[in-house]
Design a protein around this nucleic acid. Structure first.
Length: 275
DNA sequence: GGCTTATCCTGGGCGC
DNA sequence: TGCGCCCAGGATAAGC
């Protein structure tokens, strides 16, 4: 389940490998993996474009192409982008692949098929078609501070975990890093967001930034569905405090980590360290 | 408006 | 071994 650090790692890889390469051919093996335009237009319009820039916005990968066109990718649950040699063996979860002028192929694999790719021509803005891009909140590593967060949390009765995972408030934080950030901040995930004191908000912001920065340095998480561009797992999960550690001892106080459901998502926390 | 729940989807784990 | 059930979860729509 790629979140901000995993996407950042992939984007860095794409940036160092693909800039100035040219898409020569596009093949769609599963139509539902294309969000826009039609399957036929996607394979017809994409070839010939040079890759000029690669950016990240939240969990979206934005590839700027020549002629002011763009390719947007969201990996959702299990999507992977892999750079392979020409005519490499196809994984059974391969949904789309692009052949490049350099002779390589960019494979989009997606086991649980929630991931999407969108192509936009020169006069089209991705944010007009992709709602999530249009309503995206701040980038936590750039503009997240108490001045921004405090008015948004005020009077909110939803659990704080739901709020920090809300992409319209903070971009890129998902289940793993929400649990880890709340542990570091010493805040129970079920707490009403509006009940946080200023000092707790400040600690939470610092924790989110610290967790994401640490994960980026580690090359992302090591969940089985995630790898970087070369197919290598990151190693953040080996150092997680609470995520997927139900029943194991807390690394700080030795109390058993508990798991509950918040917003339909598995939530892991230490009942002793988090208040 | 704010919040919760259902939906999409499929491989893996588990019990029988 | 094979079957059925449950779980995982990001974004969005629907419902309360």
């Amino acid at each position: 389940m790629p979140e901000l650090p995993e996407i950042e790692t992939i984007v860095k890889g794409l940036r160092s490998e693909l800039i100035h390469d040219v898409i020569s051919h596009a093949v769609v093996l599963r139509e539902a993996s294309i969000g826009h335009p039609s399957n036929e237009d996607f394979v017809r319009q994409l070839p010939g474009h040079e890759i000029e820039r690669v950016k990240r916005r939240g969990k979206y990968i934005l590839i700027e192409l020549s002629d002011k066109a763009s390719l947007v990718i969201h990996l959702k649950m299990s999507g992977r982008l892999l750079l392979k040699k020409k005519k490499s063996k196809h994984n059974k979860f391969l949904r789309v692949f692009l052949t490049l002028k350099s002779g390589r192929e960019l494979h989009f694999e997606d086991m649980r098929v929630f991931g999407r790719m969108w192509y936009f021509g020169s006069n089209q803005k991705p944010e007009d078609k992709i709602k999530g891009l249009n309503t995206m909140g701040v980038e936590p590593l750039d503009h997240l501070d108490i001045k921004y967060l405090k008015p948004l949390l005020k009077k909110k009765t939803a659990p704080i975990k739901n709020v920090i995972m809300d992409q319209t408030i903070i971009a890129g934080v998902g289940n793993i890093y929400a649990d880890e950030s709340l542990f570091l901040a010493g805040i129970k995930p079920a707490r009403k967001a509006g009940s946080l004191k200023d000092s707790e908000m400040k600690t939470l912001i610092e924790s989110i930034i610290k967790v994401l920065t640490t994960a980026i340095k580690a090359g992302g998480s090591s969940m089985k569905d995630y790898t970087n561009l070369e197919g290598v797992n990151g190693n953040y999960m080996s150092q997680s405090f609470v995520y997927r550690r139900t029943g194991q001892n807390c690394r700080k106080c030795k109390t058993q980590i508990e798991r509950i459901k918040i917003g339909g998502r598995s939530t892991h926390f230490c009942p002793c360290c988090q208040k």
